[in-house]
């Protein structure tokens, strides 16, 4: 599989403070890759380096095999991406169509995609925060980028708008867009990402698919939900299997659940700190 992003031993300092300590990872074409970590862990710094807003102190990065990102092939959405608030939604998108050399006919398609077809003539400052975020997403995908960088795309959004953005991102990914997502929202990462990396204090502590991480850090126990609202935890071994058989034979067993940790639990286990 082709790597869209390759990062080798990336180090960055702000003054004397080391904020990235030798990051090493790849993102494959068509993948949604989650970069998870609490505030100050280095997520935004990494995205800034990958999008040429910042020059890393040491190490090597490759975007589509090149040391610098081709701006025509990438789209960027951050929680503070600015819009021209005195202009209409349509005029904001016209500007970026012309800057990217994209046909203006694409604007109506993109507004449809982000469920804002009726708001084209609305002045941006009259939109809600969720709507503005969707306009920013529309702007980021206007030129059909191969790679989309999303820095906390749903932070401070209500659940309805959050779900809307997730639906759009899943569709984009299904259509072939590679997505690099930074978030401290574990649920968002579980829902969207094929693989995640846990970043803490500038270091990657673990990297794999959410499912593989949960299995790896599972405590090998199983919860049995029994009649009369009882719950019993058994080990995943022969003795546990015998217990389960007994509960089934007695007609007491209602449900079986494997006790896998959440991504948040794993992060806590690895770093000793919460993700928020």
């Amino acid at each position: 599989m082709e790597n869209v992003i390759e990062v080798r031993n990336l180090v960055h300092y702000f003054g004397k403070k080391s904020v990235l300590k030798g990051l090493h990872f790849e993102v494959e074409k068509g993948e949604t890759f989650g970069f998870l970590g609490p505030s100050g862990s280095g997520k935004t710094t990494t995205i800034k380096i990958l999008t040429s807003q910042l020059i890393g102190s040491k190490g090597e990065i490759r975007i589509f095999g090149q040391p610098q990102a081709d701006l025509k092939r990438i789209g960027i959405l951050t929680d503070n991406s600015g819009l021209y608030d005195r202009l209409t939604v349509y005029d904001n998108l016209v500007l970026f169509c012309d800057l990217y050399g994209t046909d203006r006919a694409r604007i109506s398609d993109v507004l449809d995609e982000v469920n804002l077809a009726a708001e084209g003539k609305t002045v941006v400052k009259k939109l809600s925060k969720g709507m503005k975020q969707r306009v920013t997403l529309a702007r980021a995908i206007l030129h059909k980028p191969d790679l989309l960088f999303l820095d906390e795309p749903t932070s401070a959004l209500d659940p309805v708008n959050r779900t809307r953005i997730h639906t759009i991102l899943r569709r984009l990914n299904a259509e072939g867009t590679t997505i690099f997502l930074t978030t401290h929202d574990m649920q968002e990462a579980e829902e969207l990402c094929h693989r995640v990396a846990f970043l803490n204090a500038g270091e990657i502590k673990a990297m794999n698919s959410p499912q593989a991480l949960r299995l790896h850090y599972s405590d090998e126990s199983i919860s049995l939900h029994l009649k009369e609202n009882k719950t019993v935890v058994v080990e995943r071994n022969e003795a546990g299997a015998a217990q389960i058989q007994d509960y089934i034979a007695n007609g007491e067993l209602l449900a079986i659940h494997s006790n896998e940790p959440t991504l948040g639990d794993i992060f806590m286990q690895l770093t000793g700190r919460d993700l928020v």
């Binding site: 807003q53 025509k72 960027i76 503070n80 991406s81 600015g82 970026f96 800057l99 990217y100 050399g101």
Partner: peptide, 15 residues
């Protein structure tokens, strides 16, 4: 443009 983070948008475009 700086205050509203729109200048960065222009800088990150092909302009």
């Amino acid at each position: 443009e700086k205050e509203k983070n729109t200048l960065r948008g222009l800088m990150l475009s092909p302009a």
